[in-house]
Computed example of a mutant assay.
Amino acid sequence: MASKGRTPLSALEKAKRKAARDYRRIAEKRSLTYDDIYGKRAGNKNMGRKPVSKEEQIRRAKKQFLKSLSEHRAEARKESIDLPDIKSLLREYRTYRANDSAGRKSADRYLILKKHLKKENEKLLQAQRELESDDIPCPLETYSGRGRKPMSKREKVKYLSDKVTEVVLEMEEVYKKVPESQKIYYELRDARLELRELRENLKNQKLAPFDDVLAAREELEQKVSELETAYNEQLKLEKKESKSKPLQSSTSALSPTTTPLPSVATTLSNSENEVTEELFQNRSPHQVIDNMKQDLAEVEEEIKRLELLEEVLRKKEEFIKKRKLIKQGIENIQNKII
């Protein structure tokens, strides 16, 4: 029986889509703000691994794009397809399938905090068990004087309790600001996770297929189906309401937690045709021109780098052909000797 689904993509199409995504990701990294990089950390912001700086993220994005560009060119050579010059190719990358919404929905601030809350609750339960147990000595009793001084059992429980309370309060504030469709999505996500866990337990025989377990599975399946319908209907309603409202009021009504990064395709296409009104907010025309000149200089620099890369790839292709001819000549001579 034939499997259902979309027609598989060719290697050339996959490489082209990947190169386009990686090129637009450079613009996304350049538009990052301080809050985008450092504001999404949960818990103590001064502990743990530091976020990657904006400059480093841009550098990594450029490196990844050059790799994707090489893969796209290689696939095109295999298919004997001539790609346009680098400027035309970059112009095509800017808008090629830029509005695709495939893939898993990314976690927002509420879901990040929820995952963080689960970890902190586990730490708190472990600290409470250690506090009630007499077999585990107090860390202060075994402290040798080297390194950071540990907290006592009671201090640790209080410290973790305060952290849990802080996360819960932030989650409540975030939840108040999200639209109704997002609230339905949170409930749908929890129901899906619960249903998946129940199915895995039944499959691995961790739960016996009694009538009450099977009834719970059917109830969860029904709940997921109802929530999916409600979620899709609410999305349609909110989309309809946003279209009926004026542009300024609709943009101001968006909450900070649900406002995505500016669309790279829209930003780049507008930069070719017209300057958006946002550029002139709180800026003089001279400042706008200076900023645009800086952006132009960066684009020109990138084009020069890519042109150099294009020349290197062209030379590489020539040497590959020469290597092939030399190998073929060696084989012919060896065959004559034999």
Rank of each mutant, 00 (worst) to 15 (best):
E173G: 05
E278F: 07
K223Y: 03
A98D: 07
P209E: 15
E130Q: 10
L111Y: 03
N335W: 05
K203E: 13
Q287V: 03
D212Q: 15
L83Q: 04
K324A: 01
K236Y: 05
A76H: 08
P246H: 06
A20D: 09
E170M: 11
L195E: 10
Q234N: 02
K114Q: 10
L195N: 06
N46A: 10
S70H: 05
K158V: 03
L237Q: 09
Y38R: 14
K4P: 00
L125F: 09
G5P: 04
N335I: 01
S106V: 01
Y231E: 05
S80P: 00
K177S: 14
V52F: 02
G147E: 07
P51I: 03
T259Q: 08
L313I: 13
D108W: 09
P137S: 04
L140E: 06
E187D: 11
I81V: 13
A107T: 04
T258F: 02
G5H: 06
L188D: 07
K14T: 12
K163G: 09
L32A: 13
D212V: 14
A20T: 10
R94A: 15
V168P: 01
S31A: 15
R196G: 04
K293V: 13
E310D: 15
R314H: 12
S271F: 08
S252M: 04
R314I: 06
T266M: 07
D135H: 02
K18G: 00
